[in-house]
Design a protein around this nucleic acid. Sequence first.
DNA 1: TACTGTAAGCTAACACCAGTAATTAAGAGG
DNA 2: CCTCTTAATTACTGGTGTTAGCTTACAGTA
Lengths: 207, 207
Amino acid sequence: MSPRPKGRTIKSDLRERIIEAAWEQISREGAPALSLRAIARDLDIAAPSIYNYFVDRDALVTALILEAYESLALHQKMANDALPVQDLHARLVSIGNAYRDWAVTYPQRYLLIFGTPIPGYVAPLETIAPIAARSLHALISVVESFHLAGRLKVANLDDQTIAVLIWTRVHGLVLVEITNNLPPISPSGSQLFEIEFRLIVDQFFVD
Amino acid sequence: MSPRPKGRTIKSDLRERIIEAAWEQISREGAPALSLRAIARDLDIAAPSIYNYFVDRDALVTALILEAYESLALHQKMANDALPVQDLHARLVSIGNAYRDWAVTYPQRYLLIFGTPIPGYVAPLETIAPIAARSLHALISVVESFHLAGRLKVANLDDQTIAVLIWTRVHGLVLVEITNNLPPISPSGSQLFEIEFRLIVDQFFVD
DNA sequence: TACTGTAAGCTAACACCAGTAATTAAGAGG
DNA sequence: CCTCTTAATTACTGGTGTTAGCTTACAGTA
């Protein structure tokens, strides 16, 4: 219709600055400590102004979760695409390493997505589910490729289930590492990851 | 030295009632929503009275975490002791099932222990670590028994590492289940657990 | 019995939080 | 120039953890 009024397009880009400040705060203090008023202080604005851009705190959290999934999915895709299609083993390892790297680089984002839900927050599944699925897509497609190549060791499980199991194994390991719940006697997170990933490959795929 | 004054021992047992109310609240609303004032309302006392029994909110949380670990460790021990010492496979399965059962029965307690830390809370490791270790004890001892019986399939990993890996697998699965992060297409939590546990046994132990 | 000290409750208050209502300043379009 | 909309503001409500200071009841002692 009518061209976007200039005032709007030029508009202060405050929405993005709010999200940026929120990330800044999350990486410092963790997701559950996210405070609209602290964001407002950081940005030198009045707290209620945030409500011009997000209907409430949950809406902001949802936006952050979407961004985090987006980032994770992108890293997965890059790790996957970085290697030749036919080298399934290399692609699998690349995906796995990229997954852990992302998690330990952005532990608070990882926890925001997969950790204990924030007190009052309930994720709008219909918004998040599609993009959440995308972060598993690279893994599923590699498993399917192994299957098509006849290189699956387990015959009685379908590809999706295998992918989910691989994911929960990696997820559990990564989560334990970034929440500092590794037993003190155990090997380091990265060592353990390497061992576990070898075991995963060994159990499911002909190398 | 001098005998505990009667007034103290008879004392209102308020401390236990606070903890009880806290559990009640946690199972309803989840750990991060725990509120001292809400507890006080439930018990018809003034909020600051709680500070007679816990130096601050974190101290209460620590007490709750200890109780939760205690309960988990006890369940593990019972599951372990319920079966003959020599039937390693049965004991392992029993431990595994008990672990998941406990987690799905008390999801909020499980999340309290292993989930995203509560906003300001930092766990006093020296208090928690010993009892936390106990909840892995049953598993470690079974793995050691398998080792002594010469029934370990993997030769290059020590018992502790194997136990930790088994735990992180089960942990990841259980956590994904109770935080509702299972991909919609995947099998149910209990089915997945059964599959995964079979894979675990198959990979590490001679049956 | 009367006195004293302490433990454990209380109210009041502070500083923070999310969110709402009402108001103002500024700019766009007629 | 006037009006309408948008995005900012301040003021406020009701929630949170926590501290300070007061009060009450009771144990131990003289």
